[in-house]
Amino acid sequence: MQVSEKRLLASIHDVAPCFESQVDRLADLIEARLGPARYAMLVVPDHWGRAPIAEARGFQARLRAWADSGVEMFVHGWFHRDTAEHKGAASLKARHMTAGEGEFLGLSHAEALQRMRDGKALVEDIIGKPAAGFIAPAWLYGPGAMQALGECGFALAEDHMRVWRPGQEDKPLARGPVVTWASRSTMRTASSLAFAALARPALQPLRTLRLAVHPGDVTKASIVASIDATLRAFSRRHVPGRYADLLK
């Protein structure tokens, strides 16, 4: 990819055995617009403590096949569930930005470091190559997680507004909001549909556009239609790329 080209980075979040059929639908939706393997997957090692990939041999084989085809594999937390008690600004984020899924918002440095290292080791052992990076569930990082990020050897990290090299968060590799959708309530769905409609023309000047989808998105036809329209609009001026392109 030429440096001058504008990039479109698409990703499927919450990739886990319990969402295999939903992930398949999302992959088909993305590939119909962007082509094969032009997206990333965010892998949750044990979603909510109920879907351990370590015990799902068939799903492990699928992850290896996706990775071998060129899909980038990010570590996406460990449980994806937030069990910490929060105060102040963190409490507001935990309450309003996610439904109890900001796993790394309230973790201590030691706990964040252990979960990151365990997740990295598991995913890399399954796919047989380095993970593309680490992205915290709900894009939420507490101080402990930010400190741990720089110690785990991940090439990339991402939040709602930027992509960066761990340890160099003050030098973003890409800026701008992720376009994503919410399916857990009528109000949130309406808000996310409205934002996506505005984003399709408004974000076109950005050099790097990011789009993220979740398993719950396939439960609402309106969201599926909006994702397709956004992929179509973004891919007109932006080349489907890889997060690794940002490191070149």
Rank of each mutant, 00 (worst) to 15 (best):
W164M: 02
W139M: 06
E103D: 05
A112P: 06
S183C: 08
S192L: 06
A94P: 00
S69G: 11
R81V: 10
Q2I: 15
Q60R: 15
G153K: 00
H47V: 11
M161I: 13
L211R: 04
L29N: 04
F74Q: 03
F104K: 08
P45M: 04
P205I: 03
A131W: 03
L107M: 08
R200Q: 05
R184S: 06
E31F: 03
P143F: 13
A56T: 03
L140E: 00
A196M: 07
A229L: 08
E111V: 14
D24A: 14
R38I: 06
F104L: 15
E151F: 01
A174I: 00
M41H: 11
F59E: 15
R33Q: 10
V179H: 03
A65R: 14
A229N: 08
I223T: 04
H13C: 07
L8K: 03
K87M: 10
Q114N: 05
L211E: 09
H76M: 09
G216E: 10
T219W: 13
E151Q: 09
R7I: 10
F74P: 00
R237G: 02
Q2L: 14
Y39W: 09
M97K: 15
G216A: 13
A190M: 03
K248M: 14
D159Y: 05
P205N: 01
A51S: 14
A54M: 10
L122A: 04
V224L: 08
